[in-house]
Write a protein that binds this DNA or RNA. Structure first.
Lengths: 344, 344
DNA sequence: CTGTTAGCGCATTCAC
DNA sequence: GTGAATGCGCTAACAG
């Protein structure tokens, strides 16, 4: 390996096909064909080209390639609210797995639940010519994803259906899961059952509340409005909310938490007071079997959510499906941890 | 084939600057300047251009832009072993945050701990002209990241230092954290202390074992080789290993688990047998305060790991740092959950 | 089987 | 202040 300054300075710029061609004593086209495994290249030249590629450490520039070849970038965009949240990161895993299998790379951005940031991310991804987009929407309306701004880039929504926009969506059976949970609590004998929701009402949150109410209605129980509370964003605030709920004149004997944050707050309350409170929560918690208190959980597979979304997206990218928006619903299952009362 | 505006509007192909220019009655250069906020553009033309952009829903093609403009792709690559693992996804969050702040997009790929896949991913990312690379390495040797194959694309390793390669690295204080844990167990009075490691010995695993041994050596205690065991990949296998360990003639009274998987296996053993066993584990577990048994954990911030890695990388990308490889060590802190014996 | 020409969408350079 | 050439790295389409 020569290491003289001139060579080092020159190699700061990656080599081009022309460099390889010159090195191998052929035309750039022969290099191009060789690298694309066209069978029509002579064995001898082919070897010379590959040797030159090896020696220069050449890597074909995929962007220049796509520019000429019709714009295929091999890119899929994923816009997610928060990668640090295990549910979303597992969803990302599912998307990535399907993308990788199709030979596509994932371009990821996080919106931090901010619609403005989401809009900016989507614009950036479109500028980078992604071939499709999986979006876990931040707000309740996705109108900004419609219109010509996407220029035909297909979009699939995850965790929430399209609102103000005709697009495919993959959602959890939020209604059904919550309904099953509240029915279960009734069958166990509970009559004062609280609902622990989120202050920032998402589509998901609304569905879970609807399911909760419907489940009890089927059992002939009307929900006491005082038992329907929402918890602000912070963990500490959730604890305060729970404390207030349980200090009421007629506290609930059971609580259904609409998401994993609420479930943990309820568990902390039980932990710190030692009181009895039956808890069912939406979202799986991997370590629940180790908890000091019994808990039941409405679980689902976030990775499957991601996989299904990516699959729908790939069908759109390939164009082998008609325009009608589709919806996929991922099932939930109720699991029990610790000793749980058996319904009579 | 030339594109006249009418055809462009009807076609699925996104509009180009030429289309916008024609629509606004100016030259493509004026569009280019306007979109780059050059002040030298007349207000009137500027407005006309922006109107045309709006009307056509035009998005500048970032790849063509980079191709002409010196190759700046605005891309950072992240190769991670498994996005579904909360530690790595939080690490990804840290990288993404720093990248986003610098106006860069993240291209993510998962290696599934497979060196061959890692090599392929890196090659693909280099072909896509990422400006830098954060890699959570799969194997113990990263020789394949060296050589001219990267062509000057800077790399920063996370969770493990560079081996067979001169690159920056950000690591956890694995040695120090494990050392503190084993000393703590000794001070609490334990003399038969087990080490629960991983079968697939990573650099991280070795450091934690070294720290464990060193901590006890400082206390004058030699480690009984029978108490040093490794757990295979699966959760079920880990449980088997633990059961065997605890069924030995002289079982340990305390165990140090080298990672979160081992910690949970130990907790499950306590849960299912009801026996006493003092547990300290490496890696934080968010729900540990809710566990039925006391646990101490050696924690650190994966997000900070990611942030620091991205920061080092950006300095390299900007070239404002010399060649010498740097190493950043992220501190650990020991936390206690549930009732834990106080050292005499 | 191989090389030449032209152009993907944009920005640098230099005229006007 | 604006526009016309020219080329970034690569590859269809067409020669040879």
């Amino acid at each position: 390996m020569t290491r003289d300054p001139a060579t080092a300075a020159a190699s700061r710029q990656p080599p081009t096909m022309r460099d390889v061609a010159a090195h191998a004593g052929v035309s750039p086209m022969t290099v191009s064909r060789t690298l694309r495994d066209e069978p029509s290249v002579d064995r001898v030249l082919r070897e010379r080209v590959l040797a030159a590629v090896e020696e220069l450490g050449y890597r074909r520039n995929d962007w220049a390639r796509g520019l000429r070849g019709g714009g295929a970038t091999g890119l899929l965009g994923l816009v997610i609210t928060n990668l640090g949240n295990p549910f979303y990161s597992q969803l990302a895993t599912g998307v990535e797995a399907v993308a990788a299998e199709a030979g596509l790379q994932l371009l990821v951005g996080t919106s931090a639940d901010d619609v403005a940031r989401e809009r900016g991310l989507v614009a950036g991804l479109v500028s980078r010519r992604v071939e499709g987009l999986v979006v876990v929407p931040a707000g309740t309306d996705q109108g900004h994803l419609a219109g010509s701004s996407l220029h035909g880039v297909p979009v699939v929504l995850a965790t929430s259906p399209a609102s103000g926009l005709a697009a495919d969506a993959v959602v959890v059976d939020d209604f059904g899961g919550a309904r099953e949970a509240s029915r279960r609590l009734f069958l166990e004998g509970h009559r004062r059952i609280a609902f622990l929701g989120l202050s920032h009402e998402t589509w998901t949150g609304q569905e879970r509340r609807r399911g909760f109410t419907a489940g009890l209605a089927e059992c002939g129980l009307e929900v006491d409005p005082e038992l329907v509370v929402t918890t602000p964003a912070g963990d500490h605030d959730a604890d305060t909310t729970l404390w207030r709920l349980m200090s009421a004149p007629r506290p609930p004997t059971a609580v259904f938490a609409a998401n994993h944050r609420g479930t943990l707050a309820a568990c902390r309350w039980v932990r710190s007071t030692g009181e009895r409170l039956r808890i069912i929560g939406f979202d799986d918690i991997a370590t629940a079997p180790l908890f000091a208190m019994p808990v039941s959980l409405v679980g689902y597979s976030p990775a499957e959510l991601g996989r299904r979304a990516a699959e729908l997206l790939l069908e759109r990218v390939r164009g082998d499906v008609d325009d009608e928006p589709r919806r996929v619903v991922v099932a939930t299952q109720l699991s029990h941890h610790g000793h749980v009362d058996v319904p009579a």
